[in-house]
């Protein structure tokens, strides 16, 4: 591992569960690594770990974050290198412990050590606003707030943004954590029918900049089930493209935002039928 780096710490958080934090952490982490960045993804969901499964590393977990915090293992022993991307590493959570095993000093020490070795530290936050979530965001320089276009998810995200503005190290120093909104599980046809909140509604309520809109897709579920981030498993699929665009925006590139729409798909369908 090369020394002398100074990583950006990114937390992927949401408040609400099941909105796609872990999927997004894996997709963004893999996309960053694919773009040549050296990345470690950390699973903060102690007791309910999933990131190892989504990354297909579950059979190689020996030591975990809690072992490192407790001094049972050294950090390099716990880091699992991805088989597909040599720049991508996973620091798994412990499945046998709970969030109380996370200590503030322990997390600070682990993050400080990782900062010198990576370009990006991506923290996968557990749902909720308790210890696991607050410690996952504690050292963040930037945050990705994963939100589904529905009222409960949006309100929980609003709550999390409030915590990012008050409970993080940056906030306590009087600085501000850079915040990006990632809308996931977006159904173009349901949005068109008014069955979900529109992108504008969500942006109006949360008033933070949008970094990407990930369309709902079976590809995402399929990728999770085979233990491969969508950005590796189906890089040409619509959700993977949206994740790649979001990743580039995260790196500061200007990429025009595309709102997923089904009009072209529908047109193709009609066209295809006619041709057949």
């Amino acid at each position: 591992m090369s020394e002398g780096k100074s990583a950006r710490v990114l937390v992927v958080t949401s408040g609400k569960g099941g909105v796609g934090k872990t999927t997004s952490t894996a997709a963004l982490g893999a996309a960053l690594a694919h773009l040549g960045q050296k990345v470690v993804v950390i699973d903060f969901d102690v007791g309910l770990r999933n990131l190892d499964l989504v990354l297909g590393a579950e059979r190689r977990v020996v030591f975990d974050l809690i072992n490192v915090i407790n001094g049972v293992a050294k950090l390099p022993q716990a880091l699992i290198k991805d088989k597909r991307l040599e720049n991508l590493f996973l620091l798994p959570a412990s499945q046998t412990r709970d969030k109380d095993a996370l200590t503030e000093e322990g997390v600070a020490k682990v993050i400080a050590e990782l900062r010198t070795k990576f370009d990006w530290i991506v923290c996968d936050s557990p749902a909720g606003i308790e210890r696991g979530a607050t410690l996952a965001m504690r050292h963040a320089d930037a945050a990705i707030i994963v939100t589904n276009p529905e009222v409960s998810s949006v309100r929980d995200s609003d709550r999390i943004i409030g915590l990012l503005d008050s409970k993080t190290e940056k906030a306590e120093r009087g600085e501000s954590v850079e915040k990006h909104l990632l809308i996931t599980r977006y159904h173009p046809w349901r949005a068109a029918r008014g069955e979900m909140l529109s992108i504008d509604d969500v942006l109006e309520i949360l008033s933070i900049p949008l970094i990407g809109i990930i369309p709902e897709s079976e590809e995402v579920l399929r990728a999770s089930n085979v233990g491969s981030p969508i950005t590796l498993n189906a890089p040409l699929s619509a959700p993977a493209k949206a994740y790649f665009d979001a990743t580039k925006r995260l790196k500061g590139e200007q990429i025009p935002m595309q709102i997923p729409s089904e009009s072209r798909g529908l047109f193709n369908k009609l066209f295809g039928r006619k041709a057949a």
Binding site: R155, I161, G162
Partner: peptide
């Protein structure tokens, strides 16, 4: 003012330039 935040100011008026979220 985000969801879950509470602003209490008994001394006088409160002016908020942004929005007050659901649950705030």
């Amino acid at each position: 003012v985000r969801s879950g935040q509470s602003v209490v100011y008994i001394e006088g008026d409160v002016t908020v330039l942004g929005s007050v979220g659901s649950g705030a």
